[in-house]
Amino acid sequence: MSAIVTLVTSVMLGIGGVWAAYNVNMLPVSASTNAPVYDELFRVLFIIGSILFIGMTALVIYSLFHFRRRPGETGDGIDLEGNISLEIFWTAVPAIVVLFVGLYSYDIYDRMGGMQSLSSHNHENHMESNAERLWGGIGSGPIETSSIDQSSSLPIELTAMQFAFIFHYPKGDIISGELHVPVGKEVSLKMESKDVIHAFWVPQFRLKQDVIPGQPTILNFTPTKSGNFPIICAELCGPYHGGMRSNVIVDEQEDFDIWFNQNAKETISSL
């Protein structure tokens, strides 16, 4: 009887968790092809997590309340040392859950392009880098999006240093402190650090990659929403680590072209 009550309450609370996962906004806006995939994973993890957490908490509170020692009561509880089938049950359930979560997140990882090998990708864009060894950030490959133009990705180089991000567009030889990218086009960011480890993080893109000195790293992503999002350095890099921020400005293609042409070296010299 009491077990049924617990079961019912925890199922109800679990449903509450599902509701919260879909209705309470726990993540910033999603602005890259990565983000909706990420949010899907988040929701699944959140639901599983709430069911487990609320279930365990309910069990503990229920036991504390129901099996509490009443005043004047003496003696011991029942002499129960174990139960093989119960043990098997609660070894198997977490194992299955974990296995499911693992496989599922593998799928997510694959859809984010994490399993793409670097060599098959992007070498044309960074010709000069053929000689040196490149490391791949997550999302080093494209995401399965047929609608998005993938004919060519936009190569950009990022140099991080204490305490700034510097972006260089090889095509127009533009140097900028802010990252300008067009909506819906894949960006291929080649990152290198001049001094200590930094990290490139755009919460709205759900992407983060360490920028490591001596280890040039490629990070690919495709923005899907125009707007202005923060770029945050997420690796302790010295006193001004907290102030090491910049912006990524995602424009419509036309606006991006205007910005690009205004700043590109050829344009400037031809003026």
Binding site: M56, L59, V60, S63, L64, F67, R68, R69, E73, G75, D76, G77, I78, L80, N83, L86, E87, W90, T91, V93, P94
Partner: peptide, 19 residues
């Protein structure tokens, strides 16, 4: 780790718990 936690809850279950 889960095995340990479930076992602890089972230890509580049916006891005479002093709060």
């Amino acid at each position: 780790t889960g095995i340990k936690f479930f076992n602890w809850v089972a230890t509580l279950w049916g006891g005479k718990i002093s709060l």
